[in-house]
Amino acid sequence: MVTTQEKKTEEKWGMVIDVDKCIGCQACVVACQSENNIPVNEEEHFNQRRPIQWIRVERYWEGEFPDVKARFIPIMCQHCDNAPCEPVCPVFATYHNSQGLNVQVYNRCIGTRFCANNCPYHVRFFNFWEPSWPESLKNQLNPDVTVRSRGIMEKCTFCIQRIRRTERESGRDGNELKDGDRALNTACVNACPTDTLVFGDFNNPESRVSKLRKKEMDDHHGRGYKMLDELGTSPNVIYLKKVDKEAKESSTH
């Protein structure tokens, strides 16, 4: 009998983000906040540099006033294969599972915040307060996701609750896990109006992410890069750089 565990080693979840397509609409941010029971960030939280945003859209301005360009880049946990956050956890609350996911186990976490200090992407968030929602949002909490209490670390999980549910339902109905299936996508991917974010299995050569990686990373002229690649974290999120019409052919990358 093929156990679920044996089957699981076949997958390696990852994402490809085409920065050229991103219009900075923040739909992914909203989708993520509501899917993953992230508390509402108020002004005070931002002033203290303590908001919780598993995915954020960073905005950069280029050029002087009349000729200004806005550039957007969505950033979430990169699920690094060689994650700097993992070895510093004294209680093994963050580790790599067999599906290539960097996992945070809430009930193990004791809130030392070492992992957040060691993360070069600033995508780990500490619950400095007991999470709270306005009364009108209490009934929209996702029952499939744990509400994290004060004093523990949290971060993007690649919507593992959706992965688990799709796995279970495919086992029940006998369907195969389909790449690009709406149910097998993260909330941010489903919300993205411009198809900037693509989620999938890197170990499946037929998946969209594998094809994109092959096209953009292996080819010398591809647009693919990994964020802060020089740190050697080997992220599972690939960014495709913005198409620059004025750039010369001979530029690096």
Partner: peptide, 12 residues
């Protein structure tokens, strides 16, 4: 029962 014992089987 040879079921997965990865933390994320139940905790997420």
């Amino acid at each position: 029962n040879d079921a997965p014992t990865d933390c994320t089987t139940c905790h997420y």
